[in-house]
Design a protein around this nucleic acid. Structure first.
Lengths: 222, 222
DNA sequence: CACCGGCGTGATAACGTCTCACGAAAACGT
DNA sequence: ACGTTTTCGTGAGACGTTATCACGCCGGTG
């Protein structure tokens, strides 16, 4: 397991490059990422970075991978600490606001020339798995009986039961599939508009809107 | 009213520049917009464009303004033709899918160096006005009485009644404010993820999800 | 200790925005 | 109808980006 000093150094430089890249993304946005500027801030000159990353796309891919992993870990930790779907919602928003550009890198406008490799879908599905777990818990416990499910059954539930590639082999009932999906899209609707600054001049607190949407999403608490 | 030939020519060139810009945005995305490429396709050389637009930012501002106007006109026309809030929803999605990059230019990740001037908020509020009109119609007609509103009243409704800068002087009840706002955020959640391609490998039709969200948003039809 | 492979550099190419000085052409006033 | 003046388009250049190349150097490896 003991790596050669060469590899240790290489890995260290790669992580420092990523750190600088995150700083730059946090301030200027993902598509303004400049390998040259990173090199200059690290005290070396442009082409040196190409020893560590074959190009801008490979760096972005690794950043996307790390971001998905960070999100998955955040949600997984929250879930392990007993947070329900509501807790996951707030953890998601906190994670997004912690570094808005990181959120936009994953769920915002795709970076112009860049296309994500199939590799990242694996980690992305891990995020969905946490959501499905929490959704299944919510639809299964409490008042959930076949006759009075905690969330009303809709035609779209039936449709999803037949189009659940994204849920893979997860043992979640159709209502849980729909809940996880709408959890994602509705919260993304609020969070993405918030981090893009579209609520800035509207005169209300985005946190209030987010909480309202989250509560509307969940079955009645009592 | 008759403009000088100089101004006529100038206006014509400006619109042709915008047309080329839209073509370029539709294919490569907003942040990949290149004045040089536009000039080359128009048969003239780089710096000539600076006679018509002071820079990339001014061109983007005009594109944003036109896009907002196009969306406002589309929704306004749909509303005038008798479409309710559901019709506006489908009109919104159709408008977004017609040119995904145009939608992302307005509601997606902000363009790196660019900051929208206060001018465009006027047209943006026109979009919101159409939404508020349709929402007010829906919350006011039919079964809407003070005791049994068609949409249940929530604490967030009360909060919005006190934070309605964005609604200006529109005579919409709190429930309509909330309806218009959630209409926007929820549909944006679905549409933005769809145009960004996040549903591509998930195995279901985004149109189904969109319709389901739209129906969940509206009061029971019958 | 000698070797050689990884590492950093400068030069180069291609493309981007944007400024400037210059020449040509068109519209304007007389 | 003719000069004047404003506008337009061009080429050159400064400065930025990504990315590739040949070269020298230093350090881990045998």
């Amino acid at each position: 397991m003991a790596k050669s000093p060469r590899e240790r150094y290489r890995a260290q430089v790669r992580t420092e490059i990523k750190e600088r890249a995150w700083e730059q993304i946090a301030t200027a946005g993902a598509s303004a990422l400049s390998l040259n500027a990173i090199a200059k801030k690290m005290g070396l000159s442009g082409p040196a970075l190409y020893r560590y990353y074959s190009g801008r796309d490979e760096l972005i891919t690794e950043l996307v991978r790390d971001a998905y992993r960070s999100l998955a870990d955040t949600l997984r930790t929250a879930a392990d600490e007993g947070a329900g779907l509501a807790g996951l919602g707030h953890a998601l928003r906190a994670w997004a606001l912690e570094d808005p550009q990181r959120y936009l890198l994953l769920f915002g406008t795709p970076v112009p020339g860049y296309h994500a490799p199939a590799e990242v879908t694996g980690i992305a599905s891990e995020v969905m798995e946490v959501l499905l777990d929490a959704s299944a818990d919510l639809t299964a416990d409490g008042t959930a009986t076949p006759s009075t499910p905690s969330t009303p059954s809709t035609p779209f539930d039936a449709y999803l039961a037949d189009h659940r590639d994204w849920a893979e082999a997860h043992p979640a009932p159709p209502a849980a599939l729909r809940l996880a999906l709408t959890f994602w899209t509705r919260l993304h609707g609020v969070v993405s508009l918030e981090v893009a600054g579209h609520f800035a001049t509207m005169g209300f607190d985005p946190a209030e809107l987010f909480s309202a949407e989250l509560e509307a999403l969940l079955p009645p608490a009592s």
